[in-house]
Simulated assay, not measured.
Amino acid sequence: MTVTKSSIWKAALIAPLGVPLSITFAVAWEALSNFGVYGLRDLPVAMLFVFLFGLPISYGAMLLFGLPYLLWLRSRGWLTWAFVCIGAAVLGSAIWVGYWQLSLRPPSLARTIPVGAMIGLVVGIIFSLTAKLPK
């Protein structure tokens, strides 16, 4: 099965939504774990801010880093789940760490690298599913 240009572009438009969705899910999980259902009362406001700030960063990262990587994979004939997900995890880690290193009190790399890798992996999985990539 060949991957068409339109399926790559469609997947590139949908996949970045995985970043704010996964962050929102993590915030909801933590609030639910720590405070029970009562902890979810502020989730809509938190979700608004996550989407408001996360989507531009997510789409910018896809445009600057993700798409060139994906097009390179396609040119080499390597556009498969494995290569997409590995690259997405690496890029997710680098972007997440880079974003936090710009803050006033950045958390340790041991805390930020795994989170970025998981977020990148979510984006890679969404991309692979949407583009219907071969395994």
Rank of each mutant, 00 (worst) to 15 (best):
V27K: 12
F25A: 14
A26L: 14
P56T: 05
P107D: 03
A131Q: 04
I57M: 15
L17N: 11
S33G: 08
L121C: 01
L40P: 06
L67S: 02
G39D: 02
L129T: 13
I119N: 08
L21E: 00
A94K: 02
L40M: 06
A12G: 12
S6H: 13
L40I: 01
A110K: 04
A46V: 05
F127G: 07
L63G: 03
I95P: 02
V27R: 10
S93L: 06
I86V: 12
P16C: 11
I125Q: 03
G36E: 11
L104T: 14
Y99E: 13
G60K: 13
T4W: 07
I126W: 09
K5Y: 10
L43A: 07
L21I: 11
A12S: 15
S108A: 13
P20V: 02
G36A: 11
G60Y: 08
S103Q: 13
A88K: 04
L71Y: 14
L67T: 05
R41K: 14
T130L: 11
G116V: 02
I113M: 10
L71R: 07
A61R: 00
L71E: 04
G36I: 09
L71N: 08
Y59M: 10
L13E: 10
A12D: 14
K5P: 04
T112G: 04
I119L: 15
C85M: 15
L55A: 14
L13P: 09
V27A: 14
L32S: 03
R76S: 08
G36L: 12
G77H: 07
G36T: 06
K135Q: 06
G60N: 07
T2Y: 10
S22W: 11
G60W: 06
K10V: 14
S93V: 00
A89D: 08
L40D: 04
A88L: 06
A61S: 13
F51W: 12
P16V: 07
F83H: 08
T2H: 14
S58L: 10
A61H: 05
V37C: 06
R111D: 06
K135W: 06
V84H: 03
P106D: 04
W72E: 03
A88G: 09
S22T: 08
I113H: 01
G66M: 04
